Amino acid sequence: MDAASFLPVDRMALFNPKRSDHAPRILLLYGSVRARSFSRLVTQEAARILEAFGAETRIFNPSGLPLPDDAPADHPKVQELRSLVQWSEGMVWCSPERHGAMTGIMKAQIDWIPLSLGSVRPTQGKTLAVMQVSGGSQSFNAVNQLRVLGRWMRLVTIPNQSSVAKAFTEFDDNDRMKPSPYYDRIVDVMEELIKFTWLTRDCAGYLVDRYSERKESAEALSARVNFKSI
C-alpha cells in the first residue's frame, strides 16, 4: 500500500484552518443536586472565569434528568442536555467525590450523551476540563475517572485539572469562592481550556480523522458502486 494512502486528503487543514470569530462555546456539567452544592458553586466560578476569558458559557442543571434507560431519549431533560452538548465546542465536568468516586448524578449525565447522533458525533474532537470537590482531604479519584470517560467520549481532555479539598471551607456567605491556591488553580485550568479550544475547534475534524474509518468508508462506497453495476 502506498504511504500516501495513510494520510488524509487535506493535510494542510491543521495548519491553515478557517478561523472562527465567535466566542468559544463551553458547556459546564456538575454532579450534585443539593441545595448548596459545592460542585455547582465551583462550576459557577469556572463559568465566570471562562466568560472573563471571552467564552460563552451554559450550565446544565441535572435536577430532573432521569436515570439512563429509565426514560426515552425524547425526555425533555435528555433533549436539553444533548442539545447543549451539540452546541458546545468544549466542556467542563465537575463532580463531588462520593465513596471514592464520581457521583451517580455526574455519570448519568455522561451516559445520556451518545457517541453519535445519526451522522453527528457530538463530543468527538471537542475540549474537556475535569474538576472535583471533596468534603475531606484532597483526592483525585473523581478527576481520574472523568479523564477515562473523556478519552472514551473522544474528547481532547486538557492536561491541567482541579481538585478542591474541604470545599465547604472555600466559600463565603455569598457563595463566592474565597481567594486561595484552589481558586488560582481553577483560573489556570479555565485558561488552559480556552487556549486548547481556540487551537483545536477549527481543525477538530482533521485532528480526529482516522485511517481505519477512511478505509471503511471507501470500502463501503466501493461495495455500493459494485452493487449498482450488477
Rank of each mutant, 00 (worst) to 15 (best):
M1A: 15
D2H: 11
D2S: 08
A3H: 15
D10G: 01
A13L: 14
L14S: 06
F15D: 11
F15T: 04
S20V: 02
D21I: 12
L28Q: 04
Y30L: 05
Y30H: 15
A35H: 12
S37M: 06
V42C: 11
V42S: 11
A46I: 02
A47K: 00
R48E: 11
I49E: 06
L50E: 00
E51K: 07
E51H: 02
A52N: 06
F53P: 01
P62Q: 07
P62K: 04
G64Y: 07
D70T: 02
P72T: 04
H75N: 07
V85T: 06
Q86V: 09
Q86T: 10
W87N: 10
S88G: 15
E89T: 09
E97L: 00
R98T: 11
H99E: 09
I105P: 10
M106H: 03
K107M: 09
K107H: 09
Q109S: 12
I110Q: 01
D111N: 08
I113C: 06
R121G: 01
M131C: 14
M131N: 11
S134E: 13
G135V: 01
N144M: 13
R147A: 09
R147I: 13
R151M: 10
M153N: 10
T157A: 06
T157R: 08
N160P: 09
S163I: 00
V164I: 14
A165E: 13
A167I: 03
A167F: 02
N174W: 00
Y182I: 04
Y182W: 12
D188F: 04
L193Q: 05
K195V: 01
K195W: 06
F196R: 00
Y206N: 04
E213S: 05
S217N: 11
A223V: 04
R224K: 14
V225D: 14
V225C: 09
N226M: 07
K228E: 15
